[in-house]
């Protein structure tokens, strides 16, 4: 295996990929997810306004990277399981949603190209973030970054993340991080979408290139 190129090479030729920049960050009141909006087939942009932030339960979302087909299929199965869980046992926690992603990614690792960040808000743990890279391991983190563009912002995020930021600070942190990822990664681009999950529910934000690009 040669470093991070492995997931991209793993795609079959002609397959649609989310060569992506995604992240999720916990903050004082909950968690915020962020993503670019580019979907590519090789060098061609198949969709320039993709929504990679997908809801799996009331206040649990995931960011998808890797094969679009694989991650959509996984997300659909997780959404089904969470509906089932709600009917049988009550509200699921973010950890349970993340564990479901993990189980699917792990047991089907031979057939999948999926790097997923699962983030959500629940009454007990408040905001939490789980990273599930290809291979199907699971890692709880204060913040997570993933996708091809993330490699360019490891240093920036590590230096600038702080625990218990305010909402505005967090939005700015994500906006600058993703704008850098988009700038240096050819497979990331378009608009920046954010989903904010708190006790008050879901809030969506969108930033256009002219807004997030520095002058």
């Amino acid at each position: 295996m040669n470093g991070i190129t492995v997931d991209i090479e793993h795609l079959k030729k002609g397959e649609v990929s989310l060569g992506t920049s995604i992240m999720a960050v916990t903050f004082k009141d909950g968690v915020i997810l962020g993503a670019d909006s580019r979907t590519t087939t090789g060098a061609y942009i198949a969709n320039r306004v993709t929504d990679k932030l997908t809801q799996v339960h009331d206040t649990i979302f995931c960011c998808r990277s890797g094969s679009a087909a694989d991650t959509q299929a996984i997300t659909d199965v997780v959404r089904y399981h969470l509906q089932m869980y709600t009917a049988q046992n009550g509200k699921p926690t973010t950890k349970i949603a993340a564990s479901l992603f993990q189980e699917l990614c792990y047991t089907n690792k031979d057939h999948l190209t999926a790097g997923i960040i699962c983030a959500g808000y629940d009454e007990k743990k408040k905001g939490s973030v789980y990273s599930i890279p290809i291979g199907g391991s699971i890692h709880q983190q204060d913040y997570a970054i993933a996708g091809s563009g993330s490699t360019f912002i490891y240093g920036y995020c590590n230096k600038n993340f702080k625990k218990n930021m305010t909402k505005d600070e967090t939005v700015n942190f994500i906006k600058t991080s993703l704008s850098q990822a988009i700038k240096w990664d050819g497979s990331s681009g378009g608009v920046i979408r954010l989903v904010i999950l708190t006790k008050d529910g879901i809030e969506r934000l969108i930033f256009y290139p002219d807004e997030y690009q520095e002058a």
């Binding site: 295996m1 492995v6 090479e9 793993h10 795609l11 079959k12 030729k13 690792k109 031979d110 057939h111 890279p133 290809i134 291979g135 391991s137």
Partner: peptide
């Protein structure tokens, strides 16, 4: 199609009767 790119079990190669786990990742 380059079978070596994705040497997963879905690949039916005459050389490998079955291949499941491929390589460690993380």
């Amino acid at each position: 199609y380059n079978y070596n790119i994705a040497n997963a079990s879905s690949v039916t190669s005459h050389r490998n009767p079955k291949m499941a786990t491929q390589q460690p990742i993380v």
